[in-house]
Nucleic acid binder design. Structure first.
Lengths: 327, 327
DNA sequence: GATGCATGTGAGAACGATTCCATAGCCACT
DNA sequence: AGTGGCTATGGAATCGTTCTCACATGCATC
């Protein structure tokens, strides 16, 4: 069932049917005839043909490192909700934490105008990334990272961790930090810097052995905390780059008979649902993931409408929650 | 840059370029010429034109109730990974727990051959759903629910909860249950039935007031547990339909000075990461969400290849974990 | 030397829409 | 009467592919 068949059955030309479907002039009489035929046949225009003709897919590619994560899924949620409002849908590209796949997907999505725009929940940013991004023929927005020269919506990782650290240092003198790899600019570099600056402002020299690195899960956080206990036995505060890592650290303290927060204070980042449930409840920073997804979608939509527009760069607000894991 | 331009520059016909790109006969000489021109121009075929011509989008629509959930995101993860292996991508449709949007998206995805197939992570199944599904012109697989008459990959909700309940009842006599609404066949009906059957097998008559209903979150689980404590003060076991609900129940017991598991045993379902971290660690059933996503993708792919194929119906295995919330 | 087969090529017709253009009736001005 | 501006319509071009033909070569076969 195509537009020609509808036109034939309604006794009009294909152009008139198209005008009926879109905007143009169609007399009341033919309007009624066409409407009836479409009703009867259940005809729906082929979006493939429309895409070819109009050069628009109403699809947005979203590249994510992994989907099974509180922060990522909330951001995707925000993106889809805002895009849906404007009749756009999301083409999901899960890289499974593989930076090469990130570049691969940038290429695939760019190929043959599959999508009208791309949102990347980036992690690492290499030269290869830069090249792939430069080649893009569609608007592009980075979410959750601040990459100079591109439209970015990102969290205030630096200040969130700095505030948490300051809070902790008001009652402590021997802080340690569990972060993630530095190739992740937002989580790896900015959060760590927030910790370091808060320490130096408080006149505390941080021992290199008090800085540990973990992956994005609690098991890894547990092991990192264990290493810290070993090397810095009198540690009284462990600032963690994520809630998950902090959960692992709390478990470790429990295991080693350290009371939280009396002996060791612990903080996370992310305000995940579990942070209010675990004992002790976790002091952490709320980052507006869903809202930033919405903002990213808005930024992209505005670029799709007017591609010449200047880049935007938005640092989202945050909120620190002082809960029971801090004295 | 299109195939005509490439053909002109390489001094061959458009058909030859197309053959070069796909399979057919092309002489070594022209092959080299075309290859060089494509290299120079960075030409990539328009997937829109290809889609129109071939009637294939290599896209699969995935309808989900919400993305920000352990189980859903793991299933989506499985789906995307398997589909990616076969060169397919996922078009995400988030219904935000709105059954009308579910039907809406079934229609949208069905319109104009936007996708080659649909996977639905369903919840409710109404007549309107049935009608919308019957109208589908593409292969269709239901994930995480067992809907008679369609290809389904689902969890063994019934036996998982029955086993957990049996385990609990070996040391208890006053069980209660916190479930979810019955319009959700898998989580609402099957899990509840598993609980009830285990009780009746153990010769225990379950009080109606010992059955509560909650939403899919811990706050709601807390409130439901509170209501149970009020109405059944001597309750010694609370079986919960999900881990999240169980977390709320544990918090509630803590608040009311009931020891878990000494005074009240608690079980969940899902084996979420937090179930191993919370105190006490939660007895729960592991359901293979990611694997079932993979299976659903496989089933759909096989239907896409041969649509005449008979429906499949797969009940996934499960594993019960006896942890500290059970005596 | 006619026939068959494998290789190689290009013209042109789809696929199913949108849109430019030409045409034409009708009405209202000057 | 001539001009211009609306409404209304259909023909034909266009988007960028793929694929069916028709046709041409070279070589082996009967």
């Amino acid at each position: 069932m195509n537009i020609n068949e509808i036109a034939k059955r309604a006794g009009v030309s294909r152009a008139t049917v198209s005008r009926y479907l879109n905007d143009g002039y169609v007399s009341q009489e033919k309007r009624a005839r066409i409407s009836r035929v479409i009703e009867e046949t259940g005809y729906v225009p082929s979006s493939q043909a429309q895409q070819l003709r109009n050069g628009k897919t109403h699809l947005v590619g979203v590249i994510i490192p992994k989907i099974n994560s509180q922060s990522v899924s909330r951001m995707v949620e925000g993106v889809t909700s805002k895009l849906a409002e404007h009749g756009y849908q999301v083409l999901l590209a899960n890289t499974e934490n593989d930076a090469n796949k990130e570049i691969e997907y940038l290429r695939i999505l760019n190929q043959g105008d599959r999508v009208d725009g791309i949102i990347m929940l980036g992690t690492i940013f290499t030269d290869a990334h830069e090249k792939a991004i430069e080649r893009l023929r569609v608007p592009f927005v980075v979410l959750d990272q601040n990459f100079e020269g591109y439209s970015c919506i990102y969290q205030d990782d630096y200040h969130a961790v700095r505030d948490l650290t300051q809070l902790a240092l008001s009652t402590a003198r021997q802080p340690a930090y569990i972060g993630v790899l530095k190739n992740d600019q937002a989580v790896g570099v900015m959060r760590r810097q927030g910790f370091l600056d808060a320490c130096s402002q408080a006149g505390i020299a941080v021992l290199p052995k008090a800085i540990e690195t973990a992956n994005f899960n609690s098991d890894s956080g547990y092991l990192a905390a264990e290493r810290i206990l070993e090397r810095v036995p009198d540690v009284d505060t462990i600032v963690c780059a994520t809630d998950e890592i902090a959960f692992g650290a709390i478990m470790c303290m429990r295991e080693y008979g350290k009371r939280v927060p009396e002996d060791v204070q612990i903080t996370g980042v992310g305000d995940s649902p579990m942070s209010r449930i675990i004992i002790p409840t976790l002091s952490t920073a709320h980052l507006p993931f869903k809202t930033s997804g919405i903002k990213a979608a808005e930024a992209l939509l505005s670029l799709i409408v007017s591609p010449k527009k200047a880049h935007v760069s938005v640092c989202m607000p945050y909120e620190v929650f002082h809960r029971n894991s801090l004295r």
